[in-house]
Design a protein around this nucleic acid. Sequence first.
DNA 1: CGGCCTATTGACGCTACTCAACATGAGTGG
DNA 2: CCACTCATGTTGAGTAGCGTCAATAGGCCG
Lengths: 249, 249
Amino acid sequence: MNRVVDISSIKLSCRSCSLSELCLPRGLSDSELDDLERMMKQGRPIRRGEPLFRVGDPFHSLFAVRSGSIKVHLPTVNGEEQIVGFHLPGELLGLDAMGHEVHTCTAIALETSSVCELPYRQMQELCHQFSGLNEQFLSLISKEISGEHEMLLMLGKKNAEVRLATFLLNLSARFKARGFSEREFNLSMSRHDIANYLGLAVETVSRLFTRFHDEGVLQVQRRLVMIKDIQQLRAIAQVSDKNCPAAAR
Amino acid sequence: MNRVVDISSIKLSCRSCSLSELCLPRGLSDSELDDLERMMKQGRPIRRGEPLFRVGDPFHSLFAVRSGSIKVHLPTVNGEEQIVGFHLPGELLGLDAMGHEVHTCTAIALETSSVCELPYRQMQELCHQFSGLNEQFLSLISKEISGEHEMLLMLGKKNAEVRLATFLLNLSARFKARGFSEREFNLSMSRHDIANYLGLAVETVSRLFTRFHDEGVLQVQRRLVMIKDIQQLRAIAQVSDKNCPAAAR
DNA sequence: CGGCCTATTGACGCTACTCAACATGAGTGG
DNA sequence: CCACTCATGTTGAGTAGCGTCAATAGGCCG
């Protein structure tokens, strides 16, 4: 089964990475990319359920998802936890810990995933040298913040139906931006994760999937989702023109 | 009544500002402070209800609250809106728009307030020159992000009682960090604003204030809040040791 | 095949929302 | 100074959306 491939020998290259337009390299020159690639470390792939970092772990690197998907959550005293984001390839992890000693949240792989490690000190030095990199970095940060604002709006004002529809449309747009189908995709997260993220009970999410299915909006087979009527889904999500176009996040 | 004082002639000084330990100047040398002060612009004070910026306004500056308090919210199609934060002196505004053309949220003064305007370009240049400033900047950003994570946890998992208790303790800690009483303070925001922020109905917030009052936890007179039993309030908010000590945000 | 985990479906109940009436205070003008 | 209005806040009654509990179904893996 296991072909012997030394994964660490695969040269990490931003230039050959399909995500460069979403990720940090966006807008960099060739020589700048060289330096960026030199700085990056590739760890071993993380398997489903394994942590990339945990609350309280010392912070020294940011991470960019290269493949797979990763959930980020805050554990609480009661044992309950709140998922604050699902990260797809090209998205950054660990921003909440910048300028602090330790991570304030936990990142767990939803499937076998690989990440590019960006040692924070070196990253800062590179940002210092290349203003373009710094700009793209801050731009990604601000997207993170506005994305979280949208999420606050969801949890504060929207009912269960709107939340799930918005969630699916958001995923759809992000898959599309990554060259995948916007109509048909596999959810890497469980119903439990979705419910947790959306502030709902698992049963409510399950019932909504069934309802959307019955209404002909979706076709759902376990974790495979096919969007049958995207206009209707948008109507349910109450999207305005403003929210609709871009691949948010 | 109105003594004639040309407000624009009052020299803006970070050095004399009591907030320097919370705000950007933290850790800067005297000469660096000089440059920072030279960059800053002081606008006229904003009165209650007036906007600092609105969704769609062109972005060219960040703002630091100097006095007063400012609410930030996202307007939506339905006319409903979601307040995503209340900003006290020393806190930054406009981070969500960095690297973009326009603001993605609206900032409204809750009372007569003054802000320091930080032109974004110049701010970036200064960050480039002074790594200490850049670090403090990123540190404030990451605090913003983790603060929003906490908020997601509140809206996703906590009931009304816990939300209001947590909100009051958070305000209390932030007032304390600014040299005010942690036990007694005036709320600059209406019940409506509080309810909106916490994802609750106004009536629920009002009922909770009454309940806390009856239980001897608070003494409430309209917008004046006196915390009578802070231990009990912490118990209600389910604070762990982890969340308790620092002046979050 | 059997055990385990994830997902679905149904019945019921509670929390917090909605609607409505009323109270209180601030501001305004006579 | 008082009467008036308007904004803000409080209180009560009824209800609905969603959570909880419980049982069942379906996939996956050893």
